[in-house]
């Protein structure tokens, strides 16, 4: 403890300081950043028309080599280029969907948990209805009704993730609401909005963060599943799940075709989980 330090350390600086000490979280963060940069600058590294969707029948199903580090697929396309381009779809759709779900879910969850009563009952019954529909089935229905597009996919995935966040935040808020420090905040005259934003939500963030990383992982898998069914990202546009499913028929002879997209999914999910766990710990001043 510095004796003369009266500066109010900001929450962000504090968190960052603690996060830096966590090796796992930093590895996760580095990988996530690299993935995002690759997705962002994929166009600089590879040319979409020639490398990603351009078919080359002279180089069908080649083993990994210097020219094609991850090998080529059944149409002679470079797998590395396709995986990197595929990360755009996987990452963008899953992040957009889960962010949307988290914001909407947390909003309704906080209201439901804080006010209780009839508001709570209504929100919870709607949530129960949504929870009752399997995620994939719901997405299939919506995509079938509205047509295959990235936007539809995001909406479908977001809606099926909302109840998870809603329930999660509701229960945390309910625990927080009854605690004495919330009563203390009311006693000093804080407004309801201040109490929710300033006192309740910061104390509820840990489970939300963990759920966020989990949901991203599950959503990436769901997108893959939908692409596999032909409802996700349409070929020839690459997407990790689609890459995985199209390589299925060549799995015995050309294992690398399944291994690399699988590794990409696994690495992303693993690093997100590491980062999420690290963030959760770093955001809690009690764990130092």
């Amino acid at each position: 403890m510095e004796n003369s330090d009266f500066r109010q350390r900001s929450m962000f600086a504090e968190t960052w300081k603690r996060l830096k000490k966590n090796k796992g979280a930093m590895i996760g963060l580095v990988i996530v950043v690299i993935l995002f940069l690759l997705a962002l600058f994929a166009g600089v590294i590879f040319d979409y028309d020639t490398d990603v969707i351009g078919q080359n029948y002279n180089e069908l199903l080649q083993e990994p080599s210097w020219k094609h580090p991850f090998g080529t697929d059944e149409m002679g396309r470079d797998l590395l280029a396709r995986i990197i381009y595929g990360s755009r779809a996987s990452l963008f759709i899953s992040f957009a969907a889960v962010c949307l779900a988290a914001v909407v879910g947390c909003f309704f969850g906080a209201i439901s948990g804080y006010f209780g009563g009839a508001v709570d009952s209504i929100i919870m019954r709607v949530t129960d209805m949504l929870l009752a529909i399997p995620e994939t089935l719901f997405a299939i229905t919506l995509v079938a009704a509205l047509g295959t597009s990235t936007f539809t996919l995001i909406i479908a995935l977001a809606i099926s993730n909302i109840p998870i966040f809603c329930r999660l935040l509701r229960s945390s808020v309910m625990t927080q609401r009854g605690s004495e420090h919330i009563e203390a905040a009311r006693a000093i005259g804080a407004k309801t909005s201040t109490i929710i934003m300033d006192h309740i939500l910061p104390n509820c963030i840990a489970p939300v963060l963990v759920q966020f990383t989990l949901s991203i992982a599950v959503t990436i898998l769901t997108i893959s599943g939908l692409s596999f069914l032909g409802l996700g990202v349409a070929p020839p546009k690459p997407e990790w799940g689609a890459l995985l499913s199209s390589s299925r028929s060549y799995m015995r002879e050309h294992t690398y075709l399944t291994i690399f997209p699988g590794l990409a999914i696994m690495t992303t999910i693993l690093s997100l989980n590491l980062l999420g766990d690290g963030l959760r710990d770093a955001l809690d001043p009690r764990l130092r």
Partner: peptide
């Protein structure tokens, strides 16, 4: 002034 000084202070 509350009974439980830890519970009545925001831990964050």
């Amino acid at each position: 002034i509350f009974q439980d000084p830890l519970a009545s202070l925001d831990p964050r």
